[in-house]
Design a protein around this nucleic acid. Structure first.
Length: 298
DNA sequence: AAGGCGGGGTC
DNA sequence: GACCCAGCCTT
């Protein structure tokens, strides 16, 4: 339904293109074991593949197995996460490791429901692990790339999330679900950009109802972030966390000096306190009196 | 349903 | 500058 050409032809075109033009992403050379897929997918959440590629090899060198994560202090995982952003994901990974080692005896769950219950694992990541690590063939893996590509092929303005999922399930090629989704992600990343799609070069242009006439997407609402001295709070949080990760232990006053200079104002000190409160609440920072350190997780 | 979350790349 | 990115959790 909604297709210009028979479904099997689209599927063959996608899979054939993928065999010849897949991005040579570092993790695609790994044999897909669940632990490695989990780490990779967590890192890829809202984070571009190119940056994950730079961090992933040394992360796996330090943490080769789920057990190595579970046995490490949380602080160590947070340190090795630095540079990736969304630092809560580091804690989620560590918590996943605790759960899998303690509750599943170190053996990864393969059912969607079980995966979905792991911290930091939502609908996308659960489907990705089931498909890429366990070879599930009947689950659509819907990230922003796949959604956008499917939506554009359909050419309809707004397909509801529910409807799009139904279609994505219907279009799954038997026996090649992993390659199918990887291919659609590559097309999304290389050609089917959100704003300036390169339709004339796209391998799917002959099968796509939107080819060459993608309507200019409306400006998304700019969200006015809370900020201090013109710098958004989330970036201050990142700076403070990195500071503690490097220093090991600092007082709030030392942290204020490192962030603002020798004599931080009262306002600046209060700002530090707010950042600390946020990071403590998220389980990324540990506070004892005025001393700050990364949590060990125990 | 909407806001917040990191950091770097892009236009 | 504004916007984006292999999402998720919280309110």
């Amino acid at each position: 339904m909604g297709l210009e050409i028979p479904l099997p032809r689209l599927q063959r075109a996608v899979l054939r293109w993928y065999t010849r033009h897949a991005r040579s992403l570092w993790w695609r050379r790994l044999s897909p074991e669940p632990y490695q897929v989990l780490v990779t997918e967590l890192m890829l959440q809202q984070t571009q593949a190119q940056r994950v590629e730079r961090v992933l090899p040394r992360f796996f060198q330090r943490f080769p197995t789920i057990r190595s994560v579970a046995e490490a202090p949380l602080a160590e995982v947070i340190r090795w996460w630095q540079g990736l952003g969304y630092n809560r994901r580091a804690r989620f990974l560590w918590e996943c490791a605790q759960t899998i080692v303690q509750h599943y005896g170190g053996c990864f769950p393969s059912e969607l429901e079980q995966l979905r219950r792991l911290p930091g694992v939502g609908a996308y990541t659960a489907a990705a692990i089931a498909t890429f690590a366990f070879g599930r063939q009947d689950v659509p893996v819907l990230d922003t790339n796949v959604r956008r590509v499917l939506q554009r092929i359909l050419g309809t303005e707004h397909t509801s999330a529910r409807e799009l999922e139904r279609i994505a399930r219907e279009w799954l090629p038997g026996g090649a679900s992993a390659q199918w989704h990887q291919a659609l992600m590559d097309v999304g990343a290389l050609y089917c950009h959100k704003h300036h799609p390169r339709c004339s070069e796209c391998p799917l242009r002959r099968y796509c109802r939107s080819a060459g006439r993608v309507p200019p997407s409306a400006r998304s609402m700019q969200r006015c972030e809370p900020s201090f001295a013109g710098i958004p709070r989330r970036l201050w949080r990142g700076r403070l966390l990195r500071l503690v990760a490097v220093a090991g232990t600092v007082t709030t006053e030392q942290a204020a000096q490192r962030l603002f200079g020798e004599r931080p104002t009262g306002e600046q000190q209060r700002w530090i306190e707010e950042l600390v409160a946020h990071l403590v609440r998220d389980g990324l920072l540990c506070r004892q009196g005025s001393w700050l350190s990364l949590p060990d997780g125990l």
